[in-house]
């Protein structure tokens, strides 16, 4: 597995955990009758911070782990060069394209909830949900392109 694939796998795990946390928190809010704007926006903030900090932590951890494993295997100092070439850039852009499409569908569905008279909180929760799902689908797509080609 290449460095990029490891990075993407770690990101996939990170966002899957964030999605799980979000859904569990939302379920608890609904069960406890706490589906208010205060709690929903607090959850938004937590998800946003987790996503940002998690992504940065993953990149740092992957770099360090790759370097340590490389040194253990080869007894050489790790040589970190320009890691992203044209294929990596192309696959990343394809993944981003897919993420945008999923996000667009999510935004459209979120707006539909307002049309059908649902609370604005439903719209906000759908927006977060599809935002995270878009990132997960993009990561899965990138892994697919790395493995199967295109």
């Amino acid at each position: 597995m290449s460095f990029q694939e490891k990075n993407i796998t770690a990101s996939l795990v990170n966002f899957t955990l964030i999605l799980g946390f979000f859904l569990i928190s939302l379920f608890q809010m609904v069960q406890g009758g706490h589906l208010t704007s205060e709690y929903v926006f607090r959850l938004w903030g937590i998800v946003a911070i987790l996503a940002t900090v998690g992504t940065v932590a993953i990149i740092i951890f992957t770099h360090i782990a790759s370097g340590v494993i490389h040194t253990m295997k080869t007894s050489e100092e790790p040589h970190i060069k320009g890691i992203q070439d044209e294929r990596d850039t192309f696959i990343e852009l394809k993944g981003t394209n897919i993420a945008y499409r999923v996000s667009s569908i999510g935004v459209a569905l979120s707006m539909l909830t307002l049309v059908f008279g649902q609370q604005p909180l439903v719209m906000f929760n759908l927006l977060i949900f599809f935002g995270v799902v878009a990132q997960i689908i993009a990561d899965i797509s990138r892994l697919y392109f790395y493995r199967r080609g295109f």
Partner: peptide, 16 residues
């Protein structure tokens, strides 16, 4: 040629 080894592998396998 300024790419990663994985890209060369992908080209040889016909995946890129």
């Amino acid at each position: 040629v300024g790419v990663t080894r994985q890209t060369i592998i992908a080209m040889e396998k016909g995946k890129y």
